[in-house]
Design a protein around this nucleic acid. Structure first.
Lengths: 129, 129
DNA sequence: CTTGACCTTGACGTCAATGTCAGGTTCTAG
DNA sequence: CTAGAACCTGACATTGACGTCAAGGTCAAG
């Protein structure tokens, strides 16, 4: 498939796909005319890249862990595996923070709803919540 | 306290504190000489702002939910509460994605470690994992 | 009343991922 | 063989949350 279809199927722009290539995250065969040719494999790969971006990794960092993704279960550089572990740990910490933030937002919402409840029932919301 | 102390205590730069003010997220009394004066309340507030940024909210969005934070349990605009709920829901979705991403990273790590295990034991890692 | 740390505003710089545009080439349907 | 959609490279633009610097004003200690 060509870049347009890859873009449509992954939900990213063609510009982004080219950028990923520029960053060494993706490679592409070329047609005789010079146009990029992709396979199903690249669809998965672009999706993976997007997941990494969403998890807060930079292009550089994604590139560093790519060996572990390209050939899982094969010997890759210690550096790749080390970076992978680091990023997993960072992500773990980040998730923990987000969970606490979500709880904080929940409490704020409850309090605001509590006030509205009070409007209806004439009774203050339960402060022991 | 002045801006330097607030910055130190919250771990952000003075530049950022001024930026928050510029974005309408924070206000400050001024000394007779025009320097910003803060209280303990602003320490909490800056920490809250940082949590929101870490959760992916923009300055504009944080500003929109601020009424619910400034006076919790008091009637705030429906818009503020609605935005707050939206952001909580987005965060929920995001956390879900991050959890799946973490699992994916865990699997990648396991596979790489499995290979090393195999190096030591001479037996392939458990493919049923 | 001076010194040095701290503060002020204003402005320009940065970085990363991506948008956008121009001018030209390739592909595919008819 | 041609039209038009899709693609190419290259380059400049954008956005948001800051960093950083300049030129000056404020504050607390001695």
């Amino acid at each position: 498939m060509r870049i347009g279809e890859l873009a449509r199927r992954t939900g990213v722009s063609a510009r982004s796909v080219r950028y990923y290539e520029e960053q060494g995250l993706l490679s592409a065969d070329r047609s005789s005319g010079g146009q990029r040719q992709y396979t199903e494999y690249e669809v998965e790969r672009v999706v993976f890249i997007q997941r990494m971006y969403a998890a807060g990794l930079s292009s550089r960092t994604i590139a560093q862990v790519m060996p572990c993704v390209e050939s899982p279960g094969v010997e890759n550089s210690d550096a790749a595996l080390a970076t992978l572990r680091e990023e997993r740990d960072k992500l773990d910490v980040h998730i923990g923070e987000l969970l606490r933030t979500r709880d904080a937002l929940d409490r704020l919402i409850e309090i605001s709803e509590g006030y509205r409840e009070q409007l209806v029932t004439g009774v203050p919301y339960d402060e022991a919540g």
